[in-house]
Structure formats: structure tokens, C-alpha cells
Write a protein that binds this DNA or RNA. Structure first.
Lengths: 308, 308
DNA sequence: AAAAATAGTTGACTATATCAACAAGATGAT
DNA sequence: ATCATCTTGTTGATATAGTCAACTATTTTT
């Protein structure tokens, strides 16, 4: 009986999958004439999107074979779409960037795809458009929740630049923190933590999503028996499915294991979701003040919690 | 400004498309080991689903190349998954049916896919599952509306068996009409209409969806200056996007063109959507009575409308 | 300091898909 | 009734896309 009910749902979902296979097939036809295949276009798109971009990363994101990826990248290089530079941190790694020509091609393909989607959108009225978008968001959130391969693991050397770069970029787009003071403060803070890293006192956890880092949290030793909770963020596309809560829990359990008796954190113009997260975990707002140093005036808040 | 707002929507939708490309990629991996490719599995699935199945139809539905399809079908035949029979109506056409072995393979692959989807579903609670399904339905409806290539055209010879077979099957699954009396009544009715077909009095329109028939309506000459509206249906997957309304409009405009002064229709246990459609078009319920002949007792209703 | 893991490359190969030409049969227009 | 047109399915030639395993050079872990 329980199973019978599920079969209907399963059939519905599989129907949707077949339907969407056709929709995607329809949209993909449009690349004809560009001289590049769908896979190549996807790679190009990811290169343009990814700040610190390497072949291995592209393979993770797009789930493609390494050899195949290598050849696509060489074709791109031959056609002057990208340039490649050995990484300074790891000489096995080659960083990939679009050239001007590559960027131009990307924009062309991008414009075509946008046009195509707009043509579809124009067949719907405002209300239908909004319904469509809202429903897509729901489908995406639940399927992410149900299929995402998410692991929380200790940081590795290679994560350092991710944590710094990504945090700078998120704070810039989401909170308009632009000042050099802020950038230096963040960069120094992370580097210092890792230089003096003491596994008995400090902790830095990375969210890994399908093999790539997608979030972070750190515990640092502030003073005797007092821990500070820092560098907390989750990639936008993974928000709303409980990963922040898991990170916070793991951080707190590290603190308990290491016998910290108190924990605090500083946050800025906290949004309801973050505040709720802290409140639910037993934190209390204890202090707040204005700060003008980060490029935009913000209200900084201190939240604290006893760990006994 | 208007355009700027659209760009956000377009970006969202394209994000969803990339996301779903990955989801589908994930699900497709599961065919490995079956000895058949994704395309082959899709063909197999369609064969099992399609009552009167031909290669050309499969090409339409799956948007595949004819030559490629030919080869897949030959591979299936070689492996005893299907048997092929020349059509009696059109000797160019070869009808395809699953053999017992083909049916068994289909069920195996189907079971695997179901299991896979169920595994995903199990990661969500009841409420989340229902939200997911509801949202998928909305996405599907609006995208169908915005992308479907729908044409309403006069019937062709080749449509006759579609109209009969499909209507029998829909009435059986949706209204539990099972009696032989009903089947004969419907079959005879359609055949008679087409035998005596007079383009000045009669009309039969077919909804064509991506090249395949997907709905129907007919006007028949009942008595002097009185038209009967019959054989009205739209494929379930295309309901809710205004195709029924379009069919009704076209049928009425045919009646006006041919100077009919009155039109009526018989319907059974009409659902709200159909009733609303008739009511909006100016029909009125004028008569109703029970009928036990169709395999299940139903309330038949007569709706009428003057055309002056 | 050795063993294991990772990034990227390459050759050989297979699977998947496309294109154009063709024959046989149906259909539509006049 | 006839002829041009369209449709169905087939085939050979070819192109594209993707996989696999072996290999080098480096970094990370133990």
C-alpha cells in the first residue's frame, strides 16, 4: 500500500525526467554552426564562471573523463580561447583562463542561449513566468538535497586559496564589502590561523560538494578555554538544505571535544536564517556596534554561548 | 529596465537547465552493464508505451535520426526483443511490438530506474515529496505551453486508427468504459463518419504535437442545420494549456462557416474543466439521464447552443 | 624515505550520431 | 488518371563523442 503510492510518484518523476530530456535536447541544438560541441560549450561556460580554474576541477563539476577534458582544453588553447599558467602553489596544476577571444566566444554563445530562453519566457505572461521560476527553485532545492554528495571534512592545503578567494567574492557580491582593509584583514586572518594551526585547539572544516569545496567553517583559539567561530559560509546554490546547521553542529562538537567552555562569533547585518541558526544552537546576542571600515557601514553583532 | 529584469529570470532558468543536465547524467549512468545505451533504452521504453508503434513515430517522439533508428531497431530484432509486421493500411510502414523477451528486458530496466528514483525520493519526507511533485508538474505544464509545437489540422487517413484506438484506451483508463457495446459503438461511429464524410457538412480536426497526433474533435451533420460535436479529447500530457479551448473554437467556427444554426454534444460525468469549457463557449445543459450500457453506470448529459 | 594519491597527457579504441542517396509506396492537385 | 511530391524505411560512408589504461611528474600521507 505504501509502496503502491510511491509508484505513482516515481512514475511522475520519471515522466518529468523524460520531458526535461526533450527540453534540453531542444535547447542544445542551437550550438550548431559555432564549431563547438555541447560538451565543449559547457566547459567554456565553466571556465568563464570559475575563478581559479583547473582541468581536474572541470572534470569534477562536469563529470567528464580526464583524457577527454585534456583534449578539449588543448583544442581551446590551439584556438586561442584560453591561456594556461602553471600554478605557483602546486606545480602539477595548470590554471586556465579565458583569453579575450575566448571571452568573446563565450559571450556570443551565452547571448544565443539567453535569446533562446527568452523566446520561451515570452510565451508566458508575468504570473506564469514567476510560477515557473518558483517551481524550478523548489525542484532544484529538493533534488539537490536528495542527490547531492556532500561531505564535511578537515581542510587540506589546497583549500586555502578557495576559502580566501571565495569568501572575498561572496562578501563583495552579497554585502558590498569592497575596502582593501577588509580584504587584507580576511586574508591575513586565514593565513595566520593556518600558520599557527594547532590541531588540539583549532579546526577548519570544508564542505565538499561533488568533489569540490563548497563551504567552510573554522574554530580558532581566542583565549584560554574560549573558542571563536569564524569563516562560516556555504555556497549559495547549496543554501536552504541544512548544511549550515551541520557545519555549526560539527564545529560545536569539536569545541566540546576540546573542552572549550565558551564560544563566540562576530557577524554583520545578520540575516534571519543565520540569526535563527545561532539562536537555535543556543547563542545569544550580547553586543553590537557600527563599523565603517569594510567599505559600507554595517552593524556588527557579537553572539555568545556557554559550552557546559 | 524591463530587459534587465528578464536577464535575471533567464539566468535562473539556465541555471536550472545546467542543474538538471547533471541530474539526468547521474540517472543515466545506471544503464551500464545492460548492454544497451541510453538512446536504445529510450527507444525500448517508447516501444513498450506506444500501442501502434512505427519507426517514424519513434523518430518524432525521440527526435532521432531515421537511419540511426533503423539500426537500433534492427539490433533489437536481431536480439529478439521485438517483432515487426508490415502494416495492413500502409505497406511502407512496419509495425513494431515487443516480444516476451523484449518485455522482460524492459521491465528489468524499468525496475532499475524506478529503484533509482525511489532512492532519491526516500531522502525526502512526505511533505517535501509532495512539494517536489507539485513543482515538477508546474514546470512541465508551463514549459509544455511555451515550447510545444502544436498544430491543429484536418484529419488524414492515417489518423483514423489513432482516433479510435486512443479514445478507447483513454475511456477505459479514465472512465472505466469496458463493455464491448461501447467499443463497437465508438468504432462504428468513427468509421461511419469517415465513410460518409462530406466536407461541406462534416469536419474532423487533429491536434498534432511535435509531429504526432495528440487530440481530436469532430463535427457531424445530425439533422438539417444542426451539428453534433463529437470525439473530443486531448492527450493527458497536453491538458491544462488551452488546447481544448482552441479545438472547441475551431469546431465552432467551422459550424458558423457552414451556416449551422444549432449545435449539441453528449458527454458523460463531465469534469469541471470540460463543463467550464462548454459553459464559457455558451453551451447550456438541457438534458441528462443514466446509462448502464458502457460497462459502468454513468450520467449522460446533453449540452446545446444556438449559433445565431 | 617509501607508499599512496593527484594533475595532467597520450595512444588506441569503441560507441554514438549524422548525412546523403536510394527504392518502394502513398498522397494531393489538377 | 497522372504526375509531382511526400513519406517510410534502408544503407554506406563518415564524423563526433566518449572511454580506458598506461605513463610522467609532483605532492601528500604515513
Amino acid at each position: 500500500m505504501e509502496h503502491e503510492r510511491n509508484i505513482d510518484k516515481i512514475t511522475e518523476i520519471r515522466g518529468f525526467n523524460r520531458f526535461y530530456t526533450n527540453i534540453l535536447g531542444l535547447l542544445e541544438k542551437d550550438l550548431f554552426g559555432s564549431g563547438y560541441s555541447l560538451s565543449e560549450a559547457r566547459v567554456l561556460f565553466e571556465i568563464s564562471k570559475t575563478e581559479y580554474c583547473t582541468a581536474a576541477q572541470l572534470c569534477n563539476i562536469l563529470k567528464m573523463d580526464r583524457g577527454y577534458m585534456s583534449r578539449i582544453i588543448h583544442k581551446f588553447e590551439k584556438n586561442n580561447l584560453i591561456c594556461r599558467k602553471e600554478s605557483e602553489e602546486d606545480s602539477r596544476v595548470i590554471k586556465i583562463q579565458l583569453t579575450e577571444k575566448g571571452d568573446k566566444l563565450f559571450h556570443e554563445l551565452n547571448e544565443r542561449s539567453n535569446q533562446q530562453v527568452e523566446d520561451i519566457l515570452m510565451k508566458l505572461n508575468e504570473e506564469e513566468q514567476l510560477n515557473l521560476l518558483k517551481s524550478m527553485e523548489v525542484v532544484k532545492r529538493y533534488l539537490t538535497k536528495a542527490t547531492a554528495n556532500i561531505v564535511i571534512r578537515p581542510y587540506k592545503k589546497a583549500d586555502v586559496s578557495y576559502v580566501i578567494d571565495r569568501q572575498l567574492s561572496l562578501y563583495e557580491t552579497e554585502r558590498h564589502f569592497t575596502s582593501e582593509v577588509w580584504k587584507t584583514y580576511l586574508r591575513q586572518g586565514v593565513l595566520e590561523l593556518l600558520k599557527k594551526f594547532n590541531p588540539q585547539k583549532d579546526c577548519m572544516l570544508i564542505v565538499e560538494y561533488n568533489g569540490n569545496p563548497a563551504g567552510c567553517v573554522a574554530i580558532t583559539h581566542a583565549e584560554e578555554s574560549v573558542a571563536q567561530f569564524r569563516y562560516f559560509f556555504v555556497e549559495p546554490e547549496l543554501r536552504g538544505i541544512g548544511i549550515g546547521r551541520r557545519l555549526l553542529e560539527e564545529a560545536l562538537s569539536f569545541c566540546k571535544e576540546k573542552k572549550y567552555s565558551h564560544i563566540f562569533l562576530w557577524t554583520v547585518s545578520a540575516q534571519e536564517t543565520a540569526r535563527n541558526l545561532y539562536r537555535k544552537a543556543g547563542f545569544e546576542l550580547t553586543e553590537s556596534h557600527e563599523n565603517d571600515e569594510w567599505g559600507v557601514p554595517v552593524l556588527e553583532e557579537k553572539w555568545e554561548k556557554d559550552l557546559l
